[in-house]
Design a protein around this nucleic acid. Structure first.
Ligand code: DGT
Ligand code: MG
Ligand code: MG
Ligand code: ZN
Length: 574
DNA sequence: GCCGTTTTCGGCCCGACTGTTTTCAGTCG
């Protein structure tokens, strides 16, 4: 059973306990544990197999660890089954409707016997909901609207899709009079791979005026909430934007609050409490004197708490506060540390541009080197290169290297890993190349055992340097293949092979928590854009974002090495 | 249910907005 499935069960337990009216802190404990498990860098099943204690996960104690073990080993959880039996099926679906919390859901279930979204819709249309105590016409209308919105919209948006839209919204917001220090926050600033909404913030002499001007923008549709310091609205026909404003001198504390994540904020605030301090978006209040201290920067805010600054990408409540206490936050890799791109395609296979165009664009970016890694001729790949074409390409690259200055082109290939684990090209040609990346492109529904064996086979192959997009997932479109990454990483560490962080925004593969685990096991990583057109070279920022969320420093990333050291490292591998 | 550099018991983040409220509960960020 996968972590995501375990997390779902605990989240569902939390929902059921809410409906039941259980102690709120017990509910929060389940919610916290569910989130922690969902984002934990190791599979709980593997931990159990290796006899490790699940209580090392923050928020997981004796009771939840025991329940998780039962769930994973037997596939069922008695406590959960009993709890579910107390409620009609599907009643927790009501809680997914924005505006409906446990009290309302409970009321709907107990007084109107409603246990599904469809039933709720009918009841509203028949006027039964508005008659309930403390509900009314407006509330009923709002619920109806939210039901329809929920049916339209497809959950979370990949960050790669969101960023161009965010740029447009930022452009429009900059024109709002009085708006200062406009800044992205929330999951967008933390660089999560998908975003639930777009959180933007700023400062103003008069926040209310700016909020009013925001909702009046032509791009802004339905306004979900609007007050004197913030507004939530649907922008560009779908995306929810949360805009928050404070006065100028609270910029640092607002940025801290609004960047999150929620659990990071709660943990930080609990820690502050123990020092007699009350933390909020307005600043830090000394509880004894009731004096509010304001902060213009986040750095000062964290320092006031005796903590090292924590980069946004690390604020996921996975031990970063304890590390900051000890001054142990690493200096994360940055875009400017990247010396070249190791995964690109040209018109020689399925790319759009010439080798020269790709190389010159890379040079403009400031890279020292660029690897051309077109596809091999394997099954399912259009325009892949065979031995002869690859030799021709190598000759052309050699010629180009002689007349282009300021950038070195590596000749390489992205060789297909066949279903049986063998490579699509023979040793003779692979050994002539500067770099060989290998990847799965077909037969993706193999069993976990087969797929794992297949990829480890490629890792063991002495011609291979890098395993590209190891799980083959496409965010929101294709699930990752079934593969035992723990075993793959151990093999990569043993054979000194590199795992790729594929920076194409719909891939981001390895993803953050898996890259973290690989790094922890001593596996070196590379970041490659998988460029198919020169504009894609800019995807590097997404890969760096993933690497930062994986706590990577420059030393963990192969392509932070300067050219001569890179070539030496590649040679040592083969 | 979790957790501990004051604690193994008794706390558990803090504030904004809405609707229906005659003073605040519910929900959300
Ligand atoms: N202190 C505190 N801060 C919160 C709470 N809920 C949200 N925040 C802060 C931290 C969040 O990152 C930020 C934005 O809230 P969102 O609901 O948009 O969450 P976030 O952007 O992290 O994730 P998302 O991708 O939108 O699901 O507001 C809370 O309950 N307490
Ligand atoms: Mg958000
Ligand atoms: Mg938000
Ligand atoms: Zn590729």
């Amino acid at each position: 059973m996968k972590n995501s499935e375990v997390a779902k069960v605990f989240q569902d337990i939390a929902d059921l306990l809410e409906l039941k009216g259980e102690n709120i802190f017990k509910i929060r404990a389940y919610q916290k544990a569910a989130r922690a498990i969902e984002h934990y860098p190791r599979e709980l099943k593997v931990m159990l197999d290796e006899g490790e204690d699940l209580q090392s996960i923050p928020g997981v104690g004796e009771a939840i660890a025991k329940k998780a073990a039962e769930l994973i080993t037997t596939g069922k959880l008695g406590y959960y089954e009993n709890l579910k039996a107390e409620f009609p099926d599907g009643v927790t679906n009501l809680l997914a409707i924005p505006g409906i919390g446990p009290k309302t859901a409970n009321k709907l279930a107990s007084e109107l016997r409603i246990s599904s979204v469809d039933e709720l819709e009918r009841a509203i249309n028949e006027g039964r909901v508005a008659k309930l105590f403390r509900l009314g016409e407006k509330t009923a209308d709002n619920i109806l609207y939210q039901i329809q919105a929920l049916r339209r919209k497809d959950q979370r948006i990949p960050i790669g899709e969101a960023l161009p839209i965010v740029e447009k919204i930022l452009g429009a917001l900059r024109s709002v009079p009085g708006m200062k220090n406009l800044t992205p926050a929330g999951s967008l600033r933390r660089f999560r791979e998908t975003l639930g909404d777009i959180d933007l913030m700023g400062t103003a002499d008069n926040p209310r005026e700016v909020v009013d001007a925001f909702v009046a923008l032509p791009q802004v549709g339905q306004v979900l909430a609007q007050g004197s310091t913030k507004a939530s609205a649907i922008v560009n026909g779908g995306l929810q934007v949360d805009l928050r404003l404070v006065e100028h001198d609270s910029f640092g504390s607002l940025l801290q609050y609004f960047t999150g994540n929620k659990q990071h904020n709660i943990s930080l605030r609990e820690r502050g409490r123990k020092q007699g301090l009350k933390l909020s978006e307005y600043g830090i209040t000394d509880i004894a004197t009731n004096k509010l201290e304001k902060f213009s920067t986040e750095e000062a805010f964290y320092h006031r708490l005796g903590l090292q600054y924590i980069p946004p990408e690390l604020r996921e409540a996975q031990g970063e506060i304890e590390m900051a206490e000890q001054g142990a936050i690493p200096k994360l890799v940055e875009l400017c540390d990247i010396k070249g791109d190791l995964h690109t395609h040209t018109e020689w296979s399925d790319g759009h541009d010439t080798i020269e165009a790709v190389a010159l664009t890379a040079k403009d970016i400031g890279y020292q080197y660029i690897a051309i890694t077109d596809h091999s001729a394997g099954r399912g790949i259009a325009h892949g290169l065979g031995v002869e074409r690859l030799r021709e390409q190598t000759a052309e690259i050699k010629a180009l290297n002689e007349h282009i200055t300021g950038i070195h082109i590596l000749s390489g290939v992205e060789v297909d890993i066949r279903a049986d684990g063998s490579l699509d090209l023979p040793h003779e040609i692979l050994s002539e190349l500067d770099i060989v990346i290998a990847a799965v492109h077909s037969a993706m529904n193999q069993s976990e055992e087969k797929m794992t064996r297949r990829v480890i086979n490629a890792i063991e192959n002495p011609d291979v340097n890098i395993i590209a997009h190891p799980t083959c997932r496409l965010i929101g479109e294709r699930e990752p293949v079934a593969i035992d990454l723990e075993a793959v990483f151990r093999a990569a560490a043993k054979y000194n092979k590199i795992m790729e962080i594929n920076a194409t925004p719909e891939r981001l593969d390895l993803k953050d928590i898996h890259a973290f685990r690989a790094k922890d096991l001593g596996v070196k990583l590379s970041i490659g854009t998988d460029t198919h057109s020169i504009t894609h070279l800019g995807f590097m920022r997404f890969g760096v974002g993933v690497a930062r969320r994986a706590w990577c420093e420059p030393q963990h990333i192969l392509n932070t090495l300067p050219l001569t050291e890179l070539l030496a490292a590649l040679n040592r591998q083969r």
